[in-house]
């Protein structure tokens, strides 16, 4: 019973409490770039979740095999292999998604969420919890992106999943689907997440803890490496 509950926790923590996008502020680039529409957000979320699941499972399986000193290059190679597979799958099964995600599909390789989970979780835990951790984080990532995509698409274009939903007298706020709108909506969502958490983490910012390479980075003590004070 106890074990079951903790496994469930591995899954759910990524969705709300440790949401990778809104709480840990990882994977910012794709979150801002592909959330111009709800369907893009889902496409990106599913692709990244698939890569995350595969990489977490394999890194967890290989955690006793990969030497500690070369673990980061080893993880990156593994992740890149899975990204290539997912890239080919998306190209074959959903060419329209491939077109709208463009460069951000291969860029899943450098998504901090995936390397971050490999370094922080999968390299220290058995396969089953690692897989659940990946699924939870993936669902959390997708949900946050979907929320942002829906807000931006609804207010910025008046549509949802490409269908007109806003009444005809509504003038879309086009700036919201432009790059500037991405920063704006993301800022407000994080402010909302802060507010809902009761301001426990006041002045949340990028820090060494959020950086996936924190463990490997020997220079964090030096001034300004991953942003000080």
């Amino acid at each position: 019973m106890e074990k079951k509950r903790s496994l469930l926790h591995e899954f759910t923590k990524g969705i709300v409490k440790e949401n990778p996008v809104l709480c840990l502020v990882l994977g910012t680039c794709p979150t801002l770039a592909v959330t111009t529409s709800a369907s893009n957000a889902i496409g990106m979320g599913v692709a990244a979740t698939l890569v995350l699941l595969c990489s977490n499972v394999f890194i967890s399986l290989l955690r006793r095999v990969i030497p500690d000193t070369v673990r980061i290059p080893a993880y990156i190679t593994l992740i890149a292999a899975f990204v290539t597979v997912v890239q080919m799958l998306v190209k074959a099964l959903a060419p329209s998604i491939d077109e709208s995600l463009g460069i951000f599909l291969p860029l899943i390789v450098v998504n901090c969420i995936i390397l971050g989970r490999a370094e922080m979780y999968a390299s220290k835990n058995p396969v089953l919890p690692s897989a659940l951790d990946a699924l939870g984080m993936g669902v959390g990532f997708t949900a946050a992106m979907l929320l942002m995509g829906m807000i931006r698409e609804l207010l910025g274009a008046g549509t949802l999943f490409g269908m007109q939903v806003m009444p005809s007298f509504y003038t879309p706020i086009t700036v919201l689907i432009l790059p500037a709108g991405g920063f704006f909506v993301f800022g407000l969502l994080i402010a909302l997440a802060n507010k809902l958490q009761g301001g426990k983490s006041k002045g949340r910012d990028f820090s060494c803890e959020a950086c996936p390479l924190a463990g490997a980075c020997t220079k964090k003590e030096t001034e300004g490496a991953c942003h000080d004070d």
């Binding site: 500037a180 407000l188 006041k202 910012d205």
Partner: peptide, 22 residues
């Protein structure tokens, strides 16, 4: 404002800088 401190206000300022680049 308290909830906007740190990252949120940084992102919103980035939005304005991005807007000027348009």
């Amino acid at each position: 404002p308290r909830s906007l401190k740190g990252l949120p206000i940084t992102l919103i300022s980035a939005a304005i800088v991005a807007l000027s680049f348009l």
